[in-house]
């Protein structure tokens, strides 16, 4: 079974491309900092706003810091924020989704109304509101995006639990005396896991878009930490003279988001061939 999932995934060239993009960026985040000749925070005012050159492949920023180095360190921050927040958000969302779907009735109604309310704050608004309460910074960005991804996952997991709740094997488990917790952990969760994996992968892209948007607005990661959205925000002042300073982080965000999106679609097709759109 596991091998056939991998086989189906590998068959989709475009999904493999997505995975390759992500692997390259993860490699850059893990190993890149050891290969950089500069420090991401080293200020060199005499060499600010340089175009690309042999010393600075992607030029320098408003304080003369090397853009390539900051891009590499920025990958770390981007992955730390997106992976941690989506993991926490998905876990909490999954727990609520399983409880709502499994127990139904009033519990379900309460949890679903709570997600309705969270979903009434569209897109970026919820993240901005949470940052308004907690303040800026990496940790608060992680919390904001985690809360942001809870309602989506809760609803998706609830939906998938509802479809398997009345399956014969769940009844069988109950008949032989399995407790609620045992039924949930050994029978319900494994069967809704493919949905969780697909949506978590897709959410990673959204998380990166949201965290970079927050930083772009000055509400996320604070200077001098290198974050792609914040780098873009600074670089827009010099769009005409050194466009590379904005293009580099912008293209990096686009590529990583695209990578997660392609991978998520590929995983969906591989894990659940019935849901294919084409």
């Amino acid at each position: 079974m596991r091998q056939s999932v991998l086989k189906r995934f590998m068959k989709r060239k475009i999904a493999v491309l997505g995975a390759v993009i992500i692997v390259l960026f993860v490699f850059m985040a893990l190993v890149g900092p050891y290969l950089c000749a500069y420090d991401p925070l080293d200020i060199d005012v005499l060499n600010k706003y340089q175009s690309s050159s042999r010393e600075h492949l992607l030029g320098t920023d408003n304080l003369g810091r090397d853009t390539l180095t900051r891009l590499v360190y920025g990958a770390r921050i981007t992955f730390i924020i997106s992976v941690t927040s989506v993991f926490i958000g998905s876990l909490i969302g999954m727990i609520f989704g399983v409880i709502a779907g499994y127990f139904g009735g009033k519990t379900d109604a309460v949890i679903m109304r709570a997600t309705d309310v969270l979903l009434a704050f569209p897109g970026l608004l919820l993240a901005i509101a949470i940052v308004a309460i907690l303040g800026t910074g990496i940790i608060n960005t992680i919390i904001a995006i985690a809360i942001f991804s809870i309602p989506y996952l809760a609803r998706i997991v609830r939906g998938s639990v509802l479809t398997i709740r009345n399956s014969e094997y769940i009844h069988a488990a109950k008949v032989i005396g399995a407790s609620h917790l045992r039924t949930i952990i050994f029978h319900i969760v494994p069967n809704s896991l493919s949905q969780v994996i697909v949506n978590t992968t897709l959410n990673l892209g959204t998380a990166i878009l949201t965290s970079s948007a927050l930083s772009f607005l000055g509400l996320g990661v604070q200077p001098p930490d290198p974050e792609w959205g914040a780098m873009l925000s600074k670089a827009r002042e010099v769009m005409r003279s050194t466009p590379i300073a904005a293009l580099a982080p912008g293209i990096a965000i686009t590529l990583v988001v695209m990578g997660f999106s392609l991978m998520g679609d590929g995983l969906r097709d591989a894990l659940d061939p019935r849901s294919r759109n084409d």
Partner: peptide, 18 residues
């Protein structure tokens, strides 16, 4: 369409201005 969903709007805005 894949490019359009992956590009952050603020980045696209800067490219359009450029």
């Amino acid at each position: 369409s894949l490019l359009s969903v992956s590009t952050p709007s603020f980045f696209l805005a800067l490219i359009l201005i450029l």
